[in-house]
Amino acid sequence: MRLAAVAGQIAVACLLLAIVAWGRSVSHFPSLVGASETLHWSPNQQLLDRAWAGAVPGIAADVAVLNIFNIYARARSQHGSNAPWRDQLYFELRSAQAMDPYFRDVYRLTEGLLAYEAQRWKEAVDILASSGPWLNSADPLLAASFIAHQYMHDDKLAIRLAYQAIKKPNASQLTIGFATALIRKRSGCKMALLFLETRLRTLPEQYRQGILLRMQRLRQSKACIEEERRQVPPLPE
């Protein structure tokens, strides 16, 4: 009798487990995250993010960066137009920067993904340019200056950002050379290719696609082919 009761209880438990497993396998609801209408960055968004992050804004920025990895991985696996992922990307980058403006990965991903891959030049420059008060590094400002010159064709902005980059303690020869070239209006295809090559080293392999694509397009562009024919002497590194 007792054995039968125990067996009965085990059977009921197994049945309930099977129901749970079946229910989970069939109940897939579409993700609500991702609609670009719902993810617009605004000052109020920053307030909300700061409030919930509380005393641990660093981890909030880390979570945002993890989201970026996920968004990018999902976008790579999908084919066709991926406009929403660019909005999501911008949102998460702004969120991460608002939480932890010292976080270097945010600026690397802004450059590599938002700029060169998603081609959101203005937004990328906004984020990179605002690194000034927080980082001692010239890198983000230099990247912003390059993007402003090369893709936004806004040399005034580019020169201003280059000047800011030069003032940073770790401003390299490349920074100074690029700034000089901008001022002298001598920047060209070779300069751009050289710059993009140095940026490759700042990103892991899986996030270099955007830069590699830009380099490929540059090499194939008329301006680059002409420049090569004219054999403009290279600038010092």
Binding site: V56, I59, A61, L66, F103, R104, Y207
Partner: peptide, 15 residues
């Protein structure tokens, strides 16, 4: 994470 692993680890530990 990518490069700033030290910073991320410290963030996690503080949290």
């Amino acid at each position: 994470f990518m490069f700033d692993i030290g910073k991320v680890l410290i963030d996690l530990l503080f949290t």
